[in-house]
């Protein structure tokens, strides 16, 4: 297998790495929960990809993600924004608005027809607009991602929660449960609140004609649908949704080597 480069996305919840061929296709991928020692974890994952694809030690590596600076022997290091912009543009092949829902942050990136990042927005420090928020709540209700969509379809949407602050929301949910409100209504309310929060982030860059989604949150099909509905635009999940950042990093590494 000819490998052009390796990209590694050291996120706060998971670490993703891909090896790409000269056409930019992903030849091998790996994903793991983030370990406390990111440096050695990254090293191990890169080594793993190298042996899997049979590529030599001189394959260039680029890193991104919140732990990007901990990755030793990475050539170019870029932020998640640039990496996701690149990866998403490669996958979509056109101008797009990307919504990436990650563990610790959500980001919206507007990518021009040239492939340039035109503008971006990230949620502030608070957990309300992040994947973590949904995770905490779903965990509390003992519900898996795959159960969400049918529940949302069933719900009437008659209940809403006013707070997207994780702490407040939890106490609101407890009192809803205590009042005997059906679980699907609560799940709906939580997702609606989340969609509103992320929707605001999208709207800060101006209303798009469509959105593409990536990151761990894109695996929640119910959320994708609801977000599209909330914004009144079609919402599509990018292929390789969890590897968009890693792919962008790999593409950067490849182009750096090619001198582009």
């Amino acid at each position: 297998m000819t490998i052009a480069s390796i990209g590694l996305d050291a996120g706060s919840t998971t670490v993703k790495a891909v090896a790409i061929n000269p056409e930019g296709q992903i030849a091998a991928r790996v994903i793991e929960n983030t370990k406390p020692d990111i440096s050695s974890q990254a090293e191990r994952l890169i080594e793993g990809l190298r042996s899997e694809t049979g590529s030599g030690p001189d394959t260039t590596v680029s890193a991104t993600g919140y732990g990007r600076k901990m990755v030793r022997n990475a050539g170019k290091v870029i932020t998640e924004i640039t990496a996701h912009g690149r990866g998403a543009f490669f996958l979509a092949g056109k101008a797009l608005t990307l919504v990436d829902v990650g563990g610790q942050d959500s980001k919206v990136i507007r990518i021009a027809a040239s492939g340039n990042v035109e503008d971006f927005a990230m949620n502030d420090k608070c957990a309300a607009g992040t994947g973590r928020f949904l995770e905490v709540i779903l965990h509390r209700l003992e519900i898996g991602y795959d159960q969400v969509e049918p529940m949302l379809d069933r719900a009437s949407g008659s209940v809403s929660i006013s707070n997207t602050c994780t702490v407040f929301a939890e106490s609101e949910i407890i009192s809803l449960l205590a009042r005997g409100v059906p679980v699907e209504e609560i799940v709906y309310a939580v997702h609606a609140a989340f969609a509103e929060r992320v929707g605001s982030l999208v709207m800060r860059l101006g209303r798009p004609s469509a959105i593409h989604m990536s990151g761990g949150g894109a695996r929640n099909a119910g959320l994708v649908k609801l977000l599209g509905k909330h914004l009144c635009v079609p919402a599509t999940v990018l292929p390789e949704a969890q590897f968009v950042g890693a792919l962008g990093a790999a593409l950067t590494a490849a182009s750096t080597r090619a001198g582009i």
Binding site: T79, T82, N116, V117, E118, M122, D124, K125
Partner: peptide
Amino acid sequence: METELEAEFSGQASTRLEAFIEMLEQPS
């Protein structure tokens, strides 16, 4: 960007700043 004037500059903040500068560096 906003600062709460804590002793340290957060990683998230520096990511946003770096991403912004990367954006300015793109060939137009």
